[in-house]
């Protein structure tokens, strides 16, 4: 059995609304193993993005716990390990507009104190098919290319798990398919776990495990 790289138990989250607190996640449990790809589907407002943010430590749960596996340190809460154990791929890429493709990838490594990473960043950009676009700014790249940069950026720190939030949401169908194919290929190749939030049934079907978030609870599709 592959080792556990992400473990969430009893996650709860609610948001304020005019009618009082609105529970979005009631008691979410999730275990992700190394190399596994999981898709999470759900209707708009079902809490998919919130769940992903809780898993990645960008939000604090009202109840429950999240742990990211780190071989040397055991299970560690993700907030302490932002950038180390988790890689993010956002729907709207979230690249730094003033930095080139290469600099955007390098930044993710430098920000957690790693140096001498330019070679690896070049390698990753090569891997996602942007070897000839290293010095291009995000404004000079297409949406699909920006998302490829974001995937390279998510991989630079060799995370245990990549959390992808609608990575094809801003792309046309063809580009979306290409990006999704690439994402699945590179995580499989590097034995990186993937948690993919998507509306698309087609993309969700490509994951090794498919889940649905409804009523604040995760269940198998």
């Amino acid at each position: 059995m592959p080792k556990v790289v992400l473990q969430a138990t009893g996650l709860k989250k609610s948001f304020a609304s005019p009618n009082g607190p609105l529970a979005v996640l009631r008691a979410v449990d999730l275990v992700v193993h190394a190399g596994e790809s999981i898709s999470i589907r759900g209707s708009s407002g079902s809490g998919k993005t919130t769940l992903l943010q809780l898993l990645g430590g960008l939000e604090t749960p009202e109840g429950g716990e999240v742990f990211i596996n780190q071989v040397e340190q055991g299970l560690v809460t993700p907030r302490k390990l932002l950038g180390h154990g988790v890689g993010f791929v956002f729907q709207n890429y979230q690249l730094m507009p003033e930095l080139t493709a290469l600099e955007n990838v390098v930044l993710a490594a430098k920000i957690i104190g790693r140096s001498q990473v330019e070679g690896k960043a070049r390698e990753l950009l090569q891997l996602v098919g942007l070897g000839d676009r290293l010095r291009h700014l995000p404004s000079q790249l297409s949406g699909g290319e920006c998302q490829r940069v974001a995937i390279a950026r998510a991989l630079i720190n060799e995370p245990a798990v990549i959390l992808a939030d609608e990575p094809t949401g801003n792309l046309d169908e063809t580009t979306g398919k290409e990006v999704m194919k690439l994402l699945l290929e590179v995580v499989a190749q590097r034995q990186t776990a993937l948690v993919l939030v998507t509306h698309s049934r087609e993309f969700a079907e490509k994951a090794s495990r498919r889940l649905v978030l409804a009523g604040g609870v995760l269940s198998s599709a």
């Binding site: 960008l58 180390h84 920000i111 720190n157």
Partner: peptide, 16 residues
């Protein structure tokens, strides 16, 4: 604001 959020998501610490 967005860049600040991204920097934190990438692992930037408060002191950064």
């Amino acid at each position: 604001t967005r860049e600040v959020g991204v920097l934190v998501a990438l692992g930037a610490q408060r002191w950064h």
